[in-house]
Amino acid sequence: MMKKIRILIAKPGLDGHDRGAKYVARALKDAGYEVIYTGIRQTPDAIVKTAIQEDVDFIGLSLLSGAHNELFPKVVELLKSKNADDIIVFGGGVIPESDIPGLKENGIRAVFTPGTPIKDIIAYIESAK
């Protein structure tokens, strides 16, 4: 047997636009990954605890409300505090280009903005795993 890559797709914050998150979840499943999807309105704490229980390799965060600068780094911070920062965090959604460097400094390893083809996300996962 081979180790399966497990990925948590999570929506922090309060926005209910889950079209992108669901699409990515389904497309990653079709690419052969095990994907855990938790639905909308997840707190950073719930996301991190879920990621640890599910022993995922990646967390993909999706947010369209503009709260990414607050919530994405919070997830990374909590992972660190639980010695789980080997889990790789990437993000997507309506995120202005100018926010990306700041997010990367805060431990978000990759940011995918609208229009990113799914093959780019898969390529990233394969290169980072």
Binding site: K29, Y37, Q42, E54
Partner: peptide, 18 residues
Amino acid sequence: FSGGALLGDRLRMQKHAT
């Protein structure tokens, strides 16, 4: 086909995540 899986059961129980 792909060997992948979409695991969504915990969604219903997610209020216990913390």
